[in-house]
Design a protein around this nucleic acid. Structure first.
Lengths: 217, 217
DNA sequence: ATTGTTGTGTTAAAGTTGTGTCATAATCAT
DNA sequence: ATGATTATGACACAACTTTAACACAACAAT
């Protein structure tokens, strides 16, 4: 799983980024100051850093100098009024930049683009003896191909991306089916059963009574 | 597959180039500084280098001296205001140059032209027992010529360039037909069937139900 | 005019997905 | 504990959607 560090002092924006990127399957960490960010960067290697330029204490510029040696790609986040000439200087070090206020969709696209460009985009997921090739949408278990339908495949990915997390039925449903969860239906259950059956995963996909499901392992 | 190194510090332009060239089937790498570029060049042989002149640290000129001994063709990218006389001098070392802002189409054409001129253009694609000659647009299977119409040919190339990738109907259609995919039409299907038939590729072109098609092998 | 290409419409086949039923399991109040 | 209540498992099946196969007409090229 890919790690993204969000360096942003405005909680609402940090949160927006955190929620959306997490939902897309990235593991996120938020730093609300330059200091905190520096600590995090010290401790761990990130695959991408989203960096707000206007930070208290240490500015984004300074932080960038700190990041550069690690070779981690950076996307700058900048407020609209500071775009003009400053940016041009800034761009020197960043892999991309985006202007606040931004469309969340645009940001997601840029994140994906930068990761792809840096050869870090997620090509496959692995859980136990199962390998999932995202690009080709193929699943193999111990090298043997196992066929999955669209819904099953999407559900499987959602489970693996959130392994060891109890996923609420409604969230799970809404994520995979892209529509409100009405409840009172066997749809989600059926699909879980189908996945369990195809992969003999009775032991891995646990049901969390009254909550939902959890992929354990 | 041909390797292209993009040396460009402006992320938006680097990205533009990356996306478009990747879509055309080139394997791309981006370097955002002269240093990084030098490292890449050290490590790997590229078939073509797109080089922005105005770079921080090491300038494009210097880098060119570094590239020359490797014999790799170079296309210069230059901002409009620096064109004048400087370029004329520069051209001595480069195989072509293009002025920012440029039409992406023009750049693609120049890339192709330079590669062809250097005898590096992708002459053929091979998949299993099928050989596709891009220039002459001829297809042979075990040495036997097989006739393809324009659309079929383009579709076939798109499939082969993306083998083992599940291609969404809409993307596939939009790539080959160069227009929005409206859906509710049998056009794409028909063409897939025709390719399958001509090459007896029922086993290789898999349909991914509700998604599209995947060339497998 | 002739030939070949390409898109579309139709019907049949194939695959998918949601739902209903009933059995079973978990939880809770008594 | 016991039974009532509610949630989930297992499974079958029908409704529905999507694709294959094919023929043909519109269109373009020669």
């Amino acid at each position: 799983m890919l790690d993204i560090l969000i360096v942003e002092d405005e909680p609402s924006i940090a949160n927006l980024l955190y929620v959306n990127l997490s939902e897309e399957g990235y593991r996120c960490t938020c730093a609300f100051s330059g200091h905190q960010a520096a600590d995090f960067i010290e401790e761990e290697n990130y695959d991408l850093i989203l960096l707000d330029i206007m930070l208290p204490e240490i500015s984004g510029y300074e932080l960038l100098e700190y990041i550069k040696p690690t070779g981690t790609p950076v996307i700058f986040i900048t407020a609209k009024d500071t775009v003009t000439d400053k940016i041009k200087g800034l761009k020197l070090g960043a892999d991309d930049y985006i202007v606040k206020p931004f469309q969340i969709g645009e940001l997601m696209a840029r994140v994906e683009a930068v990761l792809r460009r840096c050869g870090k985009s997620e090509k496959q997921l692995i859980f136990k003896d199962v390998v999932i090739n995202i690009e080709s949408r193929q699943v193999t278990q111990r090298g043997q191909a196992v066929e999955f339908t669209v819904k099953e495949f999407d559900l499987l990915i959602e489970l693996i991306r959130n392994k060891n997390v109890a996923l609420y039925r409604d969230r799970l449903y809404e994520k995979v089916w892209q529509e409100k969860y009405a409840g009172e239906t066997r749809t989600l259950d059926s699909h879980i059963q189908r996945i369990r059956k195809k992969l003999s995963w009775d032991d891995y996909i646990k049901t969390v009574f009254r909550i939902g499901y959890r992929l354990e392992g």
